[in-house]
């Protein structure tokens, strides 16, 4: 068991303004899972992923990562936990414009106590996996959107984290490129047993996914049928 969410609720605001972004969620994620979180805009997808990442603390309930409760950790401890155990892919890539593709991939590795040799090895591996072995020294502005998202994926997987979270990673891409990104996720999942949880509102991607979590008004339901 990689992740276990128990009776997890996250609310925003209070009184009339109270919003249940996630409501009483129970969820188990296994090592090697490949999960799509699907729901309309405002349904709570981002909230769920941010709870998984430890970016948000739950209002009630608990999250266990490999049996360890993370909701009571301080912000700094959760950041350290993320660095060691998770990769994150954003909708708008969020590469640092002043760093080359290689340096962007290196960035989280440089924050860890790793030798330069190990960093070089992991960076080269990740860049090759995402198919950008020849674009090491390009700056983000010199890459297309799809290529930038590949660099972001390389950055997320280079440290071989136990969980990779992706919040609408294909929303900014055309459908062909979006398909390529999902294919890349699938490949990394199958070849290296990397665990993926990504959110999307694109129904065409759903058929290709082992597990689908449907979310609506903060309520979670498992299954491919709407």
């Amino acid at each position: 068991m990689l992740i276990e969410m128990q009776n997890l609720t996250k609310t925003y605001g209070e009184g009339d303004q109270l919003v249940h972004a996630t409501q009483d969620v129970n969820l188990k994620i296994l090592e090697g899972d490949f999960i799509a979180v699907v729901g309309p805009s405002g349904s709570g997808k981002t909230t769920l992923l941010n709870l998984l990442a430890g970016l948000l603390g739950p209002t009630s309930g608990s999250i266990l990562h490999r049996g360890k409760e993370i909701q009571h950790l301080s912000m700094e401890e959760r950041t350290a936990h993320r660095l060691a155990n998770m990769g994150f892919v954003f909708q708008d890539y969020q590469l640092l414009p002043v760093l080359t593709a290689r340096e962007n991939v290196e960035l989280p590795l440089q924050m860890r106590n790793m030798s330069q040799a190990e960093i070089d090895e992991k960076t080269a591996w990740a860049m090759t996996q995402v198919g950008l072995g020849d674009k090491f020294d390009r700056y983000p502005r010199q890459l297309s959107g799809g290529q930038q998202q590949r660099v972001a994926i390389a950055r997320a997987v280079a440290g071989r984290p136990s969980l990779i979270l992706a919040d609408e990673p294909t929303a900014n891409l055309d459908s062909k490129t979006a398909q390529d990104i999902i294919d890349l996720f699938k490949k990394l999942n199958q070849e290296f047993k990397l665990t993926f949880v990504f959110s999307t509102h694109d129904p065409r991607l759903i058929d290709q996914v082992k597990r689908v979590l449907r979310i609506n008004d903060g309520q979670l339901r498992e299954g491919k049928t709407p």
């Binding site: 660095l83 994150f88 924050m111 950055r155």
Partner: peptide, 15 residues
């Protein structure tokens, strides 16, 4: 926004 995403990918305040 950049600092936020840096934090998301694991940068501590001190970094």
């Amino acid at each position: 926004k950049e600092f936020y995403s840096l934090n998301v990918i694991g940068a501590r305040s001190s970094w």
